[in-house]
Design a protein around this nucleic acid. Structure first.
Length: 502
RNA sequence: GGCGGCAUGGCCAAGUGGUUCAAGGCGACGGAUUGCAAAUCCGUUAUCCGAGGGUUCGAAUCCCUCUGCCGCCUCCA
């Protein structure tokens, strides 16, 4: 099976072939850290973290780099407003960003380079551009001359001359072309700055990504990712300056994820969906979101839509995904309960299944697991269709539940069949884990609260007694009252009772 | 004005020419199971894929027109 990815550069799905066989370098544009991160900032990292995990599963050695842009006009302005230094603000915002990623299970990023740690590399790169005649200085500012890059516009498919109308003409500046962009900006007295051949200043917006990606991944690397809003001008400019500086291709595959949208009320009173954006002021800090929902559910939610499509964020949408995800966990719990074995940390064994499946029914079941496994990977190979893959997971869960019910394994346990079902559940967990899902049980009980467990044991015992005495009024009263505390009881065929929080 | 994307059942969401093409999830309804529930299973819930044309033996899937929404062209994941 071969992975195909949609490349923004060519506007089509292409067979993925790394520049160097077996090794993959991925660079993803991270946030400019001047305000709290919102869920949109987590989309890219979650998707590319999942993609890396999949590539690793396929046997590649992958290096994933996500940058932090920590020097920029907006950070300077915001820090002045807050009475902080630029560095202090950047650190503070970055910290929140990292905490969010950590909760979302984004743990495969190898480096988080910061622009301010690579000023030397940035200056070198600008100098190379100057040597190539593509950079020019005007009063301490240095601009990139897009007329020196014949392919300018190749990524975003636009021609600079078509852009004139409707575009704000930037005042002054002495730029040769309207589309020229700053590589280096002269610093004002009060602003942070670094010494450079052009005087004290700071990097322009795009140059840091070229400098850092090349530094960590080489002048040509495999995958460059980011939000769709970055295609122009950010990524277009990255391509232009990188190719012009090195004379080599820059990123081979450009992957762009859809933007997160949110329903907002327009001035006229009608609702509309628009992108979640710091500048539009319609953001919900990711910190708050992660307090409202299990982080695992947010990750599941983000991967339940194809990465190139926009995601409309709403409580209803997360709730329904949370419900669905919980049902998968229920199946995994069911098998741990029935088999007494761990399903999360043990890979499914094909040979075990081959040996155990003897009857036609068992063989058919085994085949369902195998084909689901294949189907799942096929989906991921097709432009990383995580939504399609997750659908396969649900189907597999249904197969396993059906098998357990039809073979009456709850009441008539058969060791081999139980093992077969267990291997199915392990397959579910293993497949989910390829995307960083289903890594460990989620709060079935109240977690480590021993007292709660003991109290629940008492309630269940009292209720069992009542039921034995046919005192159903009391038994039901106990259950109903627990329900008001969002505790649900489930009676098992063997007379035992489980409980979980809703 | 230019460039690009999207429009699938009550909601979310796969599918981009042809027995698995109308997946999957949530919700709803009916049934099995249960003392009753919960969970689980079974069944029903889009003759149709924004509208209208066209190409084709055949289209949600290709082409054209139209409508609506969104993104970018200025900072933005």
């Amino acid at each position: 099976m071969a992975l195909r990815l949609y490349n923004t550069l060519t506007n089509q799905k292409e067979l993925f072939e790394p520049i160097e066989p077996g090794k993959v370098g991925i660079y993803v544009c991270g946030p400019t850290v001047y305000k709290d991160s919102h869920i949109g900032h987590a989309v890219g990292p979650v998707i590319f973290d999942a993609l890396k995990k999949y590539l690793v599963y396929k046997g590649y050695h992958v290096k994933l780099v996500v940058n932090i842009t920590d020097v920029d006009d907006k950070i300077i302005l915001e820090s002045q407003r807050l009475g902080l230094s630029m560095r202090e603000l950047a650190e503070q915002v970055s910290k929140g960003y990292f905490e969010a990623l950590d909760k979302l299970g984004v743990d495969s990023i190898d480096v988080f380079p910061r622009a301010t740690e690579h000023i030397g590399h940035i200056i070198e790169l600008i100098q190379r551009l100057g040597e190539n005649g593509a950079a020019y200085e005007v009063n301490g500012d240095v601009y990139f001359d897009i007329s020196r890059c014949p392919n300018y516009g190749c990524l975003s498919n636009r021609k600079s001359e078509d852009q004139a109308e409707g575009t704000r003409q930037l005042a002054g500046g002495g730029k040769r072309n309207a589309g020229d962009f700053a590589l280096w900006k002269a610093a004002k007295e009060s602003e942070v700055g670094w010494d450079s051949p052009w005087g004290r200043g700071r990097p322009g917006w795009h140059i840091e990504c070229s400098a850092m990606s090349m530094h960590y991944l080489g002048e040509s690397f495999d995958i460059h990712g980011g939000g769709m809003d970055l295609v122009f001008p950010h990524h277009e400019n990255e391509v232009a300056q990188s190719v012009t500086a090195t004379g080599k291709p820059f990123a081979k595959y450009w992957l762009h994820n859809g933007l997160t949208r949110v329903r907002t009320k327009a001035a006229g009173g009608e609702w509309k969906n628009e992108k979640m954006s710091k500048s539009l002021g319609n953001i919900k800090p990711i910190r708050e979101l992660l307090e409202e929902y299990p982080p695992q559910a947010i990750r599941f939610f983000l991967l339940s839509t194809h990465y190139r499509r926009p995601i409309d964020f709403s409580d209803d949408a997360i709730q329904s995904v949370l419900k669905g995800m919980t049902n998968i966990y229920r199946l995994l719990e069911r098998l741990e309960r029935l088999s007494g074995e761990d399903v999360y940390h043990s890979k499914g064994s094909v040979t075990t299944m081959e040996e155990l499946a003897r009857t036609e029914t068992d063989k058919a079941f085994r085949n369902e697991i195998h084909s689901a496994h294949l189907h799942y990977l096929e989906n991921l190979d097709d432009d990383f269709n995580t939504a399609g893959a997750i659908a396969v997971l649900y189907e597999l869960c249904n197969s396993i539940n059906r098998y357990i019910d039809q073979q009456r394994l709850e009441t008539h346990p058969n060791k081999d069949q139980l093992t077969l079902a267990l291997e199915g559940a392990r397959t579910v967990a293993m497949l989910g884990q390829i995307l960083g899902l289903l890594r460990e049980p989620i709060g079935k009980t109240t977690g480590g609260d021993a007292l709660a467990g003991q109290l629940m044991g008492l309630f269940i015992e009292m209720r069992a007694e009542a039921r034995q005495n046919k005192n159903f009024a009391l038994a039901d009263a106990i259950r109903h009252k627990l329900k008001t505390l969002h505790i649900v009881l489930e009676d098992r065929p063997d007379g035992s009772t489980d409980w979980h929080k809703e």
